[in-house]
Simulated assay, not measured.
Amino acid sequence: MAAILTTDHLPGRTILHNNREYLFFSGTSYLGIPQNTEFQQLLIESLSRYGTMFGSSRNGNLRLSIYEEAERQIAALTGAEAALTLSSGMMAGQVVANYLRAQQYSFLYGPCTHPALWHEPTVDLPTLSFVDWTDRLPDLLTITGHAVIAVNSIDAVRSEAYPFDWVNQLPTDQPITLVVDDSHGLGVLREAGSGIWQQIPRRPNVRLIVTASLAKAMGLPGGVVFSDAETIAAIQHTAFFGACSPIPPAYLDAFRKAETIYTQARIRLTQNIALAERLLLPTGLFRQAAGYPVFYTEWDELYPFLLENGIFIYSFAYPTPADKANTRIVISAFHEPEDINRLAACIYELR
């Protein structure tokens, strides 16, 4: 089992453990928003107006306008017609799964679909590759009635981008709801971090719903659902959503004022990814989806070696302790070029 470190502060470029400093290349703070002092100052100002939490249902008889304002802004970022925020990415997925399950639709899951989209506590996920699974979809869709297809937008663990051209091959005589978890693409991939929404082909009989955690690149303690306005309104009117605690409003207020901060962070992240691609990919050790800040390797021995050399990377079993450990390097906007150069030098030394 990989060595586990414990610390008492938020990781940034570095972490401290037993009075030793380690470079930090893990986590999912791709844009470094939680560590960004300018964003922290915006949040402090917002906390003075909105407090730490809004202790009420979003469907109550007193409503805060900041929710609708922020949801319009984040929907515009992706190109979606409407958006709905919740207290976590897990809740965003589950409010959709609960809504669709109530319609008694049939569910089909792609490989490695995130548990946030599961409509039961456990589901049997296909063991095929994503491409092989999509090739079989026409045969799988022989079920009658409305079908739900639930997939991830990217394999975030193994840094593999998923294609979506297969949507054009779906049957045209069957109602289908396509649900895509874009937790690791939103804020990072495509122009302005718009994510997967505009990349998925549209079909008249296919309704699209995209869910995402806001706790990754966006640095907010919440989740979001994107879809057409009618579907978003229907989800908002469910008992499940009405019973959910909302995302703390101060974070959405800070988000609305932080457009420049996000833009600058994406520029820094893009530069850091480009440097890491130039230095790490020629080793032949890593797999990486173009433009994505995760470099996956089958070489699990990399973790203890780098740890000895003062560099901490991601290496643990996911999503359950029974799964195989996976090892990856995560690049963030808070890294400096010398951090990435030092990381690469250690890897070349081991090679």
Rank of each mutant, 00 (worst) to 15 (best):
L5S: 07
S332M: 06
Q104L: 05
L275S: 02
G242R: 07
Q35H: 02
R158K: 15
D139H: 15
L281N: 07
I261P: 13
Y296K: 02
L64E: 08
T320N: 06
G55A: 08
L125W: 04
L10P: 01
Q271A: 15
Q73V: 08
K324F: 11
G185D: 13
G93V: 00
P282F: 10
T28W: 09
C346Q: 14
F241D: 00
Y162R: 14
N168K: 14
V95G: 01
R266G: 03
G89Q: 05
R158P: 10
V95I: 08
D135G: 03
S153R: 08
G284N: 06
R328W: 05
N341G: 01
T52M: 09
E277T: 14
I340W: 10
T134A: 04
E259G: 02
S106E: 08
L285E: 01
L208I: 08
G193W: 00
F286T: 02
Y251Q: 15
V206N: 03
F107E: 04
F316C: 06
A97W: 10
R49P: 02
S46V: 00
A147S: 15
A229D: 12
F226M: 07
P321R: 12
P221F: 08
A258F: 06
G32R: 06
L170K: 07
Y318G: 01
H146T: 12
G219V: 13
Q41G: 01
L280P: 12
E38V: 09
T263C: 05
G93L: 01
